[in-house]
Computed example of a mutant assay.
Amino acid sequence: MPYSTTVRRPRWWAELLLIAVVYLAYSAGRLLARGDVSTAVDNGLAILRAEKALFLDAETPLNRLFTEIPALGVPADFVYASLHYLVTPAILIWLFRRRPLRYRAARTWLMLSTLLGLVGFTLVPTCPPRLLDATHGFVDTMAQYSSYGWWGGEASAPRGMGGLTNQYAAMPSLHVGWALWCGVMLWRHGRTPLLRTLAVAYPLITTLVVMGTANHYFLDAVAGVAVMGAGALLTRPALRLADRVRARAGARFSGRTAEPAAGTAAGPATATAAGTVGGGVNRGLPGGTRETGEAVSGTKSPIVGAGCQTSTGERIPGQRTTSADPTPSAGADDSTAAAAR
């Protein structure tokens, strides 16, 4: 059964609260996932050796290029330190406002992939290339060009706030993962050639930036793509599970409120309906009988005031007259009165 989509836009305050809770949990998890430095360095060197064996060591020439040419290195540092935190929320807001039917699945995909990335940080703490020994040939461009921006020598954190980030959370690269998510959203839901172009360019530029600034290995970027793929596969089951839980909770809640308490009488509306089934008037008599004592029948009488007595000449609105019950004329009333005299 496919997961449900609702036409109504989600509540903005609930979404904001959910995203804030997930991001705070993710940030706290990154700090708690700080592994042993020697283990992180060993993992980083193992990745570097594997890349060299497979001729995938793209970060070495890119880092050399960004280090030697400030016109490339400085913009790359700005991209690494800012767009990750600006573009992704902007696209979330855009989807929320313009594509509310698609927003829930997109948000769930992003959150699941982020939590999977946190698992990767915990299981595989990895030293980024910029923190390896200088003999491996990498330069920390963020530290080299720190005078141009707000960051220091500790990843993209502002100066003096390096202790609030885990510098050994390189595997997988969520910079690349989130950029891929942004690209997919722009490609799927963008209407203009410009958005389609940005959908392709943004993930590619981000991949080059994370390697050229020596913050990630090429295999970190590959792992970021894999994490997003896993999150995409889990999105539909996660939404189905959420819908099932919501439906059960709603049914349980409505069942408690809808069922009358044991031993209580039916409400006024029920009593009224029971007494007027046959079109008669219920005066609260036992058994739901009419005022004339006639039993309530299951069929509706064709005469509006069936069974009710009226004064001479009085007619209930909508009541039909029949040949068997003619209305006395004014002349008949006069003759009757004369006879009485």
Rank of each mutant, 00 (worst) to 15 (best):
G153R: 03
L31W: 02
R64Q: 12
R49S: 13
R30I: 14
S147R: 15
W94R: 01
A25L: 12
P129Q: 00
G153Y: 07
R34N: 04
V21G: 11
L118N: 11
I69A: 08
P128Q: 00
L118W: 06
T141P: 00
L116I: 12
P75W: 08
R130V: 15
R102Q: 14
A53L: 12
L118C: 11
I93H: 04
V37L: 13
R49E: 14
E154V: 07
R49Y: 13
M161K: 10
T126R: 03
R104A: 06
G152L: 05
G152I: 03
R99G: 06
A81F: 13
I47A: 03
L116M: 07
T39K: 12
L164Q: 12
I93Y: 05
V21F: 08
V79H: 10
A106F: 03
Y145L: 12
A20D: 14
L123W: 13
I69V: 12
E59N: 08
P100C: 03
F55G: 06
E51P: 04
R130A: 15
I47V: 09
G44K: 10
A33E: 02
G137V: 01
P89T: 00
V74F: 08
L48C: 03
K52Y: 05
G153A: 14
V22N: 08
T114F: 07
S38K: 11
A50G: 07
L56C: 05
S82F: 15
F55L: 14
S113A: 11
G153M: 06
G162I: 00
A58I: 13
A28M: 14
A46F: 12
L24H: 10
V79R: 06
